[in-house]
Design a protein around this nucleic acid. Structure first.
Length: 292
DNA sequence: AACCAGGATAGCA
DNA sequence: TGCTATCCTGGT
């Protein structure tokens, strides 16, 4: 049976590096590369492959429940609001940001389900991308529905609540196990809590999220940016911290001050700028590492 | 063989 | 408010 590929419409500003960074750069842990220009991932309960060929992005469903194209377009933020968001960033006056936007043209924030994003970022502290993926896969295999082809769905927080801390530790989560279990127990009592979060303003949602065990400012921002539709969220991890210190000359600034700087300088879609700077910083770090 | 990693938290000054 | 040690585990 030959694989059916459907072209994705609007995509004039996508580049290969932009796609790679978007899918594999650390905002989602659901994607893996099959080759240099082909990737497989799970979107809710659908197994999807993406392909970049002749400067054209196309998609194919290889398992799970059928996915509407409109759902895919929303997931990939493929609408005019992306172009407007890019245009609203201060690239005209910010040379660093401008360079990153050129280099990673088409890099975007995926609109992922907030419950999935919360789980992976609870496990993310002091872990590398491959390690987070590994933990995620173990949990999905243990508790999620089988989608065929070795792919498993996100189990949902109700099933996660059945996990004991001991069992979670046996999967290799370490001290993060109590965060996951604690959050699962909390959400079990408050089933609508996560969805209601999206109705709140960014600042309120962030404060609220930080009530969960294991969620501090950084992880709260990740959850809101990648899963909560809050593009003003600006997660400051060590990479961004470095970038702001070196590129933006903010040596000696505290994280809270940098947070304010980011809101003022980058504005309403600060999180999108963050993603570009993140990719730039990480790529340059890898480059200098390989030169040693 | 120490040391650190894409953080959060408790304890103390 | 600001600083530090500690938490698990795996990689260098």
């Amino acid at each position: 049976m030959t694989q059916v590929w459907k072209p994705i419409g609007k995509q004039d500003i996508i580049s290969l590096t932009g796609i790679v960074e978007t899918l594999l750069g650390g905002q989602s842990f659901a994607w893996n590369s099959l080759s240099n220009h082909r990737w497989r991932g799970v979107i809710s309960r659908s197994v999807i492959e993406l392909q970049w060929k002749k400067r054209q992005l196309s998609w194919s469903q290889t398992g799970g429940t059928p996915l509407n194209e409109s759902t895919l377009l929303d997931y990939l933020w493929l609408d005019d609001s992306y172009i407007a968001a890019i245009d609203a960033l201060p690239w005209r006056s910010d040379y660093i940001l401008n360079r990153a936007i050129q280099k990673f043209s088409g890099l975007r924030i995926l609109r992922q389900p907030i419950e999935e994003v919360l789980m992976v970022f609870l496990l993310s502290s002091a872990k590398s991308i491959p390690q987070i993926k590994e933990l995620r896969t173990k949990i999905h295999r243990l508790l999620g529905n089988d989608l065929g082809g070795g792919n498993y769905a996100f189990p949902g927080w109700d099933r996660l609540a059945s996990l004991s801390e001991e069992k979670a530790r046996s999967l290799g989560m370490g001290y993060r196990a109590k965060y996951l279990v604690g959050t699962a127990r909390f959400l079990q009592q408050r089933p609508d809590w996560l969805d209601e979060l999206k109705q709140l303003s960014y600042n309120q949602a962030k404060m609220t999220l930080m009530e969960l065990p294991g969620v501090g400012p950084k992880i709260a921002d990740c959850v809101l940016l990648f899963g909560g539709g809050k593009t003003e969220a600006f997660p400051i991890d060590t990479w961004i911290f470095q970038s702001l210190q070196k590129q933006y000359r903010l040596e000696g600034w505290k994280v809270a001050q940098m947070q304010d700087f980011a809101q003022i300088h980058f504005g309403q879609h600060a999180g999108l700028a963050q993603q570009f700077l993140f990719s730039l910083e990480r790529t340059e770090a890898r480059k200098s590492l390989s030169q040693k």
